Simulated assay, not measured.
Amino acid sequence: MIFAHDTEEALVVAVALVNTGTEAELLPDVSALETFLSQWTWTGKLVGDDAELEAVRALRLRLRRFWTATEDEAVELANGMLREARALPQLVKHDGWDYHLHATPPDADLDVRIAVEFAMAMLDVIRTKSLDRLRTCAATDCEDVLVDLSKNRSRRFCEGGCGNRTNAAAYRARKSRS
């Protein structure tokens, strides 16, 4: 494990959330948002209305900025999210998880909880000089983001099958030349 479990989980959830808005809208309605949240076992208050959906969709753009940010820009983005939410980090234990950090109450707005969880994770990423682990998929036709949690920092492709597709295309190109 590169980071603490809750840090890695927040990073992976943020990747999944950002990637719901790259090509096709994968959060078209409240039901899709609820499905997304249940896949990631997200806890806390869920209003389940269009305003909440729009707030989460808007958050995706804000989170995506971290993937192109310099270290100083990432610090300002993370600090801004924490200031806005008046985050108060605390150790909590719930739902079978051992102690981990939360910095908002469970009844805070969903977009605020997601933003703060990610900002807290980014504190670890920045402090460990690991900002280079936030990447955009190396496939030329993909704009999805990823977080490289491999020990040797070798991950280049998103979860959407781009690595297989790129490797198959390279293989076919090599075979056609021979």
Rank of each mutant, 00 (worst) to 15 (best):
N167H: 14
V12H: 09
L123N: 08
G161A: 13
A121P: 02
D95E: 10
V15W: 01
G44R: 00
V30L: 06
E23K: 09
T7G: 09
L26R: 13
A55G: 04
S130W: 03
L53P: 00
F157T: 10
L11E: 09
N79A: 08
L77F: 04
D6H: 15
V47Y: 06
V145N: 08
T166A: 15
P105A: 04
P106F: 08
L134G: 06
A69V: 04
A51I: 03
M120C: 09
N19P: 07
L61P: 00
L101W: 09
T140V: 14
A24W: 05
E76P: 00
A24I: 10
W67I: 02
A69H: 03
I114A: 02
A4W: 04
M81V: 00
F66Y: 12
L59K: 01
A173T: 08
T22R: 13
A51T: 05
T104A: 06
L27S: 06
W97V: 09
M81L: 12
I126K: 05
N167Y: 11
V30R: 04
I126G: 05
L11N: 09
L82I: 08
C142P: 09
Y171M: 11
V92N: 10
K45A: 06
R155H: 11
C158Y: 14
M1N: 12
R155I: 15
A69C: 04
L110K: 00
V145L: 09
L134Q: 06
I114F: 02
D111A: 15
T7P: 07
T166R: 13
T7R: 08
Q90K: 12
E117C: 07
D148G: 13
D98H: 10
D29W: 06
D148A: 10
G160P: 11
A78Q: 00
T140C: 10
L88V: 11
L134N: 07
V47W: 04
A16G: 10
D95W: 05
M120D: 02
W40H: 15
H100T: 01
A51N: 07
V30F: 06
A108N: 02
S31I: 03
A10D: 07
L123P: 00
S150E: 11
G48R: 03
C158T: 10
S154M: 14
M81H: 02
S38W: 03
T68Q: 03
R133F: 08
L53Q: 01
D141R: 13
D148C: 13
A4Y: 06
S176F: 01
D141A: 15
T70A: 05
Y99L: 15
R156I: 14
L17R: 02
F157E: 08
A55F: 05
N152W: 13
E143L: 12
D141G: 11
H5Q: 12
C158M: 14
W67V: 03
A16R: 07
A87M: 08
E34W: 00
